[in-house]
Every structure is written in C-alpha cells, then in structure tokens.
Design a protein around this nucleic acid. Structure first.
Lengths: 212, 212
DNA sequence: TCGAACTATAGAACGTTGTTCGGTCTCGCG
DNA sequence: CGCGAGACCGAACAACGTTCTATAGTTCGA
C-alpha cells in the first residue's frame, strides 16, 4: 500500500493522492484504506519514511570521506535530488516533527559531519539546522507546480524562461534596477545550479567558522 | 476586504480563512466575495501583496548603509520577522510567481545590495536567490502549527522543548551520535537565534566570495 | 460442528471546502 | 416611470477526508 501511495505521489503529485483514487488503484474500497492507516497524515508519514530510507541507503558511503564538509555537501545533494524526484516530499518534511524515523537518521548523518570540525556544539546544531532548512526550502520552492500561464503557453521550459526574463528586462530600471540588470543571466540560469551555488556559499561560511 | 482577510489569517491561521467565514465577518454572502476576487488564490495574492507592502515601508531606510551585507541582513530580518508575525505568508511566498508586485520589489531591494559588491552578475543572482530561499524556507518551517502532542500536553513551550530534548538524549548514541550529543544545546536553543546564525553563515560565504 | 469473536473489507453517508449559477436588490439615467 | 448594469445573495455542486454500518472470511474453544 505504501508502495502504491508513493507511485501515485510520484506520478501525479500530492493533490492526486486521494483516498478514493488510492482505493481504486488497489481495487478496494475507501474504508479499507482506513483499516491500515488512521489518517492521511499517517499515510504520508509512511511514504516519506520509506523514501528517506532510500536516501539513507544511497548516502551510506558518503560519510567517511576525508573532508567533512565535502561529505555534508554530497549528502545534501543526494537529499535534494530525491526531493526533486519526489516533488511531494518537501511539503511533508516541512511539517515533520523529529521522531526517531529515517528523517531524524538523515539529520543525524548530516550533523555528524559537523562534529568532525572545530565547532562548538551550538555551532554544530546551527550549522546542521541551517543546511537542512536551506536544502528543504529550495527543494520545496522548486517543487511548486509550474504556473498556469506556462501550461497554457505550450512553450518549452527554456523558451518560457526566456519569455520570463524578457518580462523582467522590460520593467522600469529605476524601479527594478536589480531585476532588470540580471535579466540576462536569469534567462540562462539553471535552478539546480543556483541551489548548488547557494549551498557552497553556506558551506563556505561554515568552513570559515571552523577555521577561524 | 483585504483588510478582513489579513485579520482572519493573522488571528486564526490559513485554515480558518474560508469564504463562508470571510463572508460572515463582512456581513455578506458567499457569492459576494466572488464579485471582488475570482478565486482564493487571488485573495491570498492581494493579502500577501498588502503585507509585503508593509515590509517595503519598514525596510525603506535600510538600503543606504555603508555595508551592503549589513543592509542585506537587516532587510532579510525584517522580512523574516513579518513572516513570523503572519504565519500564513510563507506558504504563499513559496508558490509565488514573480510578477511586478511588492514581492518582486522586495527581491529587487535585496539583490540591489549585492550589486554594490565585487560580484559577477551570475553571483549576484545566486546570492539573492539563496538568501530569499533561506529566509522563506526557515520562516515556513517555523510557521508550522505546533505538533499535536504539544497541544495535548499543556506544557509551556520551554518545558516541551526540554521534554523533546530529553527524548533526543534518550536515543541510542550508536545510532544517533549527533542527535544525542547536541541534545543539551538543543534544549536551550532559540529558533530565531538559529535563523540568525544560519543567515550569518550564508552572508559570510557571500562576503568571502566578494573579497576573494 | 457450531457459533461467537475477530480480521478485513466495502461503500454509503456526513460535514466541510472552493466554486458556480440563477436570481434579487439598488441605484442612476433616459 | 422604466430599465439595464452593477452589486449582492445563498442554494446547489463536486470533491475531499473521515466516520459509520454492514458484511464476508477466518479462528478457535466448547
């Protein structure tokens, strides 16, 4: 059942996961689903935990590299990639609590790298929290459904981005000096690349703190 | 009407804003609301734009300080504070598009500070995007409704945090070395403080990039 | 072998939500 | 006075999560 849940979420997004649709897919009735889970929240719990288990497996070999920050980066990227693949994960992780599930296991794995640096415990907590917040925040942002006018336009993503950049460029430079100035690089930007750049900024800050 | 919408959102959260409740508050019928807005999305658009207008006003004097990064920090904090005050703002900003609204104005104001540093345009875009993602990401995270067992427990926030930390401490140190190790500082952490620490890490990375 | 207890399932029904639709009221102007 | 457009209203609709009741299959001790 968790399997079918994940499949539906992957295929059609979070909004497509209804108890009725899930029951239909499983060839059963709505009530039957409630025999196994007590609410939709619990269903998402199980689905998310399952998926985070995959991340734990793929990041298993990333913890012993010589540079803790490089490891931290690799694990973060793996989590980020999984969240892009499963666009529904982010919104779940946001409302996540912190029970001894795979989510906490992953947090521990990230934070453990920071213990290998010359950082006070408080700085370790702040660093780990910040990295997670950033990764999840960006992933949730990118997981937003594409705007309606993109779907209507029928354009390729690249074309749409160019059109979007044109709009930015057309604004009043007095009112939007920054937006108009970076419209060109915006037209060619890649979301994943921007994420990596930001992550590296953050990690540079942490490294600086550890070395200072 | 936008006024009433914001008031309801502030008072009782996003879930309490229903067309029926809004109509009742305004002393009208459900259908009347649809005369002024065409969907709930548009209602949130207007409410968010209004609130972001306030942020623009309060950050108006933060753009001319000598240190661009300090300005960037001040503006970010102002946005963050407003998002904590209006817990519904974050989830909206996530699905935000980027029309020439106050949201884009604020983005421009943040990015403009980066143009004063020795950064390539691409780096400016990445820096501004990253800061915004981080601020919004953390704010959305903190705006999550408190877990059910906290409400049930009837504990003070501080007591609940301590209980939570105890739970972390009680986990197996072999399996959760990081979580168990930082349980103590976790018990005394302050979310807003952690946010500021992370923001400073990020800004340190940007400053390093500008000076390198 | 029987029947009660329990597991598992199914789908009707409830309450709430955003949204639509047809109707009603109220002006201001010819 | 008449009447058309603007403003407004609430019943009705579809979809959702959830609860409820009914029912088939299974287990198990007397």
């Amino acid at each position: 059942m968790v399997e079918a849940t994940i499949a539906m979420l992957d295929e059609s997004g979070e909004s497509a996961l209804t108890f009725r649709a899930l029951a239909a897919r499983l060839g059963g009735g709505v009530g039957s689903v409630y025999w196994y889970v007590s609410s939709k929240e619990e269903l998402l719990d199980k689905a998310a935990d399952e998926v985070l288990g995959h991340v734990l497996v793929t990041t298993d070999g990333m913890v012993d590299g010589p540079d803790p920050i490089a490891n931290l980066r690799a694990i973060s990227v793996a989590l980020f990639d999984e969240m892009l693949r499963r666009q529904w994960l982010g919104s779940y992780l946001l409302r996540n609590n912190g029970l001894p599930t795979n989510s906490l296991r992953l947090f521990d794995r990230l934070g453990r790298q920071l213990t290998r640096l010359d950082l006070a415990p408080k700085q370790q907590l702040e660093g780990a929290s910040t990295v997670v917040s950033y990764v999840v925040g960006v992933a949730v942002d990118l997981a937003q459904p594409p705007p309606q006018d993109f779907l209507d336009s029928g354009l390729e993503p690249g074309e749409y981005l160019a059109m979007y950049a044109d709009r930015w460029r057309s604004y009043d430079p007095e009112e939007f000096p920054f937006v108009t100035a970076i419209a060109d690089v915006f037209a060619q930007h890649d979301d994943a690349e921007v994420f990596l750049a930001g992550l590296d900024l953050l990690l540079a800050g942490i490294r600086l703190q550890a070395e200072g």
